Simulated assay, not measured.
Amino acid sequence: MSKTWFITGASKGFGREWAEAALERGDNVAGTARNLDDVKELVDGYPDTFFPLQLDVTDRSADVDAVKKAHEKFGQLDVVVNNAGYGHFGMVEELTEDEVRAQLETNFFGALWVTQAALPIMRAQGSGHIIQVSSIGGISAFPTVGAYHASKWALEGLSQSLSQEVAGFGIHVTLIEPGGYSTDWSGPSAQRSDEIDAYADVREQAAKRPSAADPGKPEATRAAILKVVDAENPPLRIFFGKAPLGIAERDYESRLQTWREWQPVSEEAHGS
C-alpha cells in the first residue's frame, strides 16, 4: 500500500533524494521548497503524485496551512520528514543574536511547528511516522558549529519526549543522525559568522576533522530511509553513514567515565 509523505526542504540534499525514492516506488509526496522552481523536475516527472508547496518553515501559520493542504490533497498523512535546515559556522564568541535565533528558528522551531501541525491528523488516523533529520551533531559536538549543535540537541530532546507521548496513538518518531555527506550543507547552504582572529588555530584544526575525508553519498540513503519508514517497529534513533557510531562510542564512554569518577561528589550533593 502506498504511503503519503510530507517532506520539508524537498528541493535538494536528503529531502530531494527521499522525495525521489518515495515517488519512484509509487508513493505520494507533498514537498516543500522556498522556491518552487527548484522542484519543477519533480512536478513534471510526477504530476499526479508530487504536490509542490512553497514554504518557509519559520512561519508557523504557513506550516499549519501547508500540512493541511497536503492532507486535503491526498487524504492521509503517513510520513512527515522535517528535513529543512542549514548549518551555521562560527565560534560561540563570534555568534550574533540574529544568527543564533535564525539557526534555531529554522532547524528547531520549523520542525516543531510542522510536527505540531501533523499530530492531530495522525492521531485521528491512529498511525503516522515523524522523521526528524538530526545529525551526529545532535548527540556530540565539535568546534565551529555550536549554534547548529544547539538546534539539533534541542530537536533530539523534544523528539525523545514526543516519542513517549504519542506511542499510544500509533505514531512513531525517528531521529535520523547522519555523519558527513556530500551535500552543500557546508557550502552554499551554510551561513558563517564574522571571524575573530584569535580563533584561527582552532578553526584550522576543526577543518581537519576525519569525517571530511570520506563523506557519504546522499543517494545511498534512499534505500535506508525506505527501510526505516517501512519497519513495523522503527528505531527512535538511527545513524546514517559509517563514522557516527565510532564518534558516539568514544563520546559516551568518556561521559560515563567522568560521571563515575565524580559520583562521590554527586552523591554528596544529594544530601543525607
Rank of each mutant, 00 (worst) to 15 (best):
G137F: 02
I139A: 10
I139N: 04
I139C: 08
I139L: 14
S140A: 15
S140D: 12
S140V: 15
S140F: 08
S140P: 01
A141R: 03
P143Y: 08
V145Y: 03
H149R: 05
S151F: 07
K152V: 06
W153V: 07
L155W: 00
L155N: 04
L155P: 00
E156D: 12
E156M: 09
E156I: 06
G157F: 07
Q160I: 10
Q160E: 15
Q160T: 11
S161C: 13
L162Q: 06
L162I: 09
Q164W: 11
V166H: 00
V166P: 00
A167Q: 11
G168C: 09
I171W: 00
I171G: 01
I171S: 03
I171R: 01
H172N: 13
T174V: 03
L175P: 04
L175M: 12
E177D: 06
P178R: 07
G180H: 04
G180R: 05
Y181H: 07
Y181S: 04
T183P: 03
G187V: 10
S189P: 05
A190D: 07
S193A: 15
E195V: 14
D197G: 01
A198P: 00
A198I: 13
Y199P: 04
R203K: 13
R203A: 04
R203V: 04
Q205E: 14
A206M: 12
A207G: 13
K208Y: 07
R209I: 14
P210Q: 08
P210G: 09
P210T: 11
S211F: 13
S211Q: 14
S211Y: 12
A213P: 02
A213S: 15
D214S: 11
D214P: 00
P215R: 10
G216Y: 03
K217C: 10
K217S: 13
E219D: 15
E219T: 14
A220H: 12
T221D: 02
T221G: 02
T221S: 14
R222N: 11
A223K: 13
A224C: 00
A224Y: 07
I225G: 00
L226S: 04
L226C: 07
K227P: 00
V228P: 01
V229R: 02
V229Q: 01
D230L: 08
A231D: 12
P234Q: 09
P234T: 08
L236V: 04
R237W: 02
R237V: 03
I238R: 03
I238K: 00
F239D: 10
F239T: 07
F240R: 00
G241Q: 00
K242M: 11
L245M: 14
L245R: 13
